[in-house]
């Protein structure tokens, strides 16, 4: 059986005055039906652009310059806009970080849900309300039928994000791309939404790509982890295994800098240096200027090396293989 989503060597670039900016530079991964993967990286690592590329929603001057995205075996890179539009919302939908920016402040929730439904089918007003209320109830909005007439500002932040999630779920997509949907929320609400999203995904066999800079959040929902750095995936594997034994020095650095892992009273561990500008990346491994294991070999980007079951990394000097 072919996987739900198969991404091969995806490249997305932005034309700028200083030449092309390679926001996504050869990303490959696959996603099975109902699977939840986490896509982790710092800001600017290309994780959000990867998400938008999957939907064909890269804003100009950006565009997908190469690679392939197959959804259930069907190539969607290069599809005409009208075909891409039909895929959005119905096959793949997306939830964004800040629900107060994504929901239209001047339209009722019911109207926004109706527009999302009408994008894919002819549906009467009564039927649209019924479907919308049912989905709102499913994401945990009390008194859903009445709340359809409310406007976004009449909801709390957490409830607003639930509404956005309901809109993304409305047409029963097979894949939801979640671009940091809990980052703007209180920690307690974050946990609630994470739990609910996971059970929603399980119930409906919806796959998810959970994009975040927050390893802790991602690891509580995803089963597999992709770590991105400077437009490339540099490590991939089951969440538990990656957390227990990171292979790439960058992943190890990210983990070490988690506050939860620090000894109380000590400074947080930092990765030395800062995220490189995508305009002047060193040849080979982009992380090498910040890496303490760097050698001349690192001037050539290594291919993916598979270690163990379902784990791979792109590093000449993976951790855990060196004698300690």
């Amino acid at each position: 059986m072919s996987p739900l989503l198969e991404v091969r060597d995806l490249k997305t670039q932005f034309a700028t005055r200083n030449g092309p900016l390679k926001a996504v530079d050869g990303v490959s991964f696959t996603l099975a039906e109902g699977e939840i993967i986490g896509l982790v990286g710092e800001s600017g690592s290309g994780k959000s652009v990867t998400g938008f590329s999957l939907l064909g929603l890269v804003d100009p001057p950006g565009r997908i310059t190469g690679g392939s995205v197959k959804l259930m075996g069907r190539e969607i890179v290069g599809l005409p806009p009208s075909d891409l539009r039909k895929i959005r919302g119905r096959e793949i939908s997306m939830v964004f970080q800040d629900p107060s920016a994504t929901l239209n402040p001047v339209l009722t929730i019911g109207m926004q849900m109706r527009l999302a439904l009408e994008a894919h089918e002819r549906i009467g007003e009564a039927a649209a309300r019924e479907r919308s209320a049912a989905v709102l109830a499913r994401v945990g909005i009390p008194d859903a039928a009445r709340r359809l007439d409310a406007h976004p500002h009449q909801f709390s932040g957490g409830m607003r994000q639930r509404v956005a999630i309901a809109i993304a779920l409305l047409n029963r997509p097979r894949l939801i791309i979640c671009d940091e949907p809990t980052t703007a929320l209180d920690v307690s609400i974050q946990a609630q939404i994470l739990t609910e999203m996971r059970s929603l995904a399980e119930e409906s066999r919806t796959a998810m790509i959970w994009i975040s800079h927050d390893l802790a959040t991602v690891s509580s929902i995803a089963s597999r982890l992709l770590v991105m750095y400077a437009g490339r995936i540099i490590e991939e594997g089951p969440v538990a295994a990656v957390l227990r034994q990171p292979r790439h020095p960058y992943t190890a650095g990210l983990l070490a800098s988690l506050p939860a892992r620090a000894e109380p009273g000590t400074d947080l561990v930092q990765i030395p240096g800062s995220t490189p500008s995508l305009f002047d990346l060193p040849p080979g491994c982009a992380f090498q200027p910040r890496c303490s294991y760097r050698t001349t070999e690192c001037g050539v980007m290594p291919d993916f090396m598979t270690v163990g079951t379902g784990r791979s990394h792109r590093c000449h000097h993976p951790l855990g293989e060196r004698p300690a």
Binding site: L57, R85, I87, S93, T102, P105, A116, A119, A164, A168
Partner: peptide
Amino acid sequence: MLSDTVRFARAAGESEFTILRRHVLRL
């Protein structure tokens, strides 16, 4: 057109005409 509202409407599969008429015009 650069706002997340428009982006989100696009992600839901709404057509450009719908977005202009129902979302942007009101905004």
